[in-house]
């Protein structure tokens, strides 16, 4: 049984530090079936004015999702993710993920919605900012948000 998470405004998520390897960027692109050359071909990327190959947006979304559900556990159901890629994420250095709960709604359909702001930094520079809207059970007796009927799911 998963422990019920009770988010509150100002609650911080555990920091995640992730080495940015060439393998991570290429493996993420391949696993998301994205064969655009800027994600695996350094010469092509440099010709396009980029410093090196860059992490694709699908991999970034996957890492943000992992960061949030590592904290929430499997009952956390993401309804909406919005992110802005401010600088390219290239091989080298470490990406640091930080997040904080900025809003929590009242109970709706036995769920609460937590809004989480996230910042990914590499070498003290912000590379990506994101906001996640996640549903969680309102109480220990509430059904999991994954059981919410489609007609009542309004992310």
């Amino acid at each position: 049984m998963t422990t019920l998470l009770k988010p509150h405004i100002g609650m911080r998520l555990p920091e995640l530090a992730l080495p940015l390897t060439r393998k991570l960027i290429i493996m993420g692109a391949a696993a998301t079936r994205d064969w655009q050359p800027q994600h695996h071909d350094p010469a092509w990327a440099k010709e396009a004015g980029l410093p090196d190959i860059i992490m694709n947006n699908y991999t970034q979304a996957g890492l943000i999702s992992r960061f949030v559900t590592d904290w929430s556990g499997p009952m956390g159901r993401i309804g909406r993710l919005r992110f802005a890629m401010r600088r390219p994420i290239c091989p080298g250095g470490t990406a640091t993920f930080n997040g904080m709960v900025v809003d929590v709604t009242a109970e709706q359909q036995a769920m609460i919605w937590a809004e989480i702001d996230i910042e990914i930094m590499v070498e003290k520079k912000t590379v990506t900012t994101a906001t996640v809207k996640m549903a969680l059970p309102a109480t220990a007796r509430s059904p999991s948000p994954w059981h919410c009927p489609a007609v009542k799911w309004h992310p």
Partner: peptide, 25 residues
């Protein structure tokens, strides 16, 4: 195919991996 993605991003969410737990959820 989705296991490759989980491996790439290091995502151990049991809903993608664990049959008994995902059956409940």
């Amino acid at each position: 195919l989705w296991t490759n993605f989980c491996v790439a991003v290091g995502d151990g969410n049991p809903l993608y991996w664990d049959y008994p737990l995902s059956r409940d959820e």
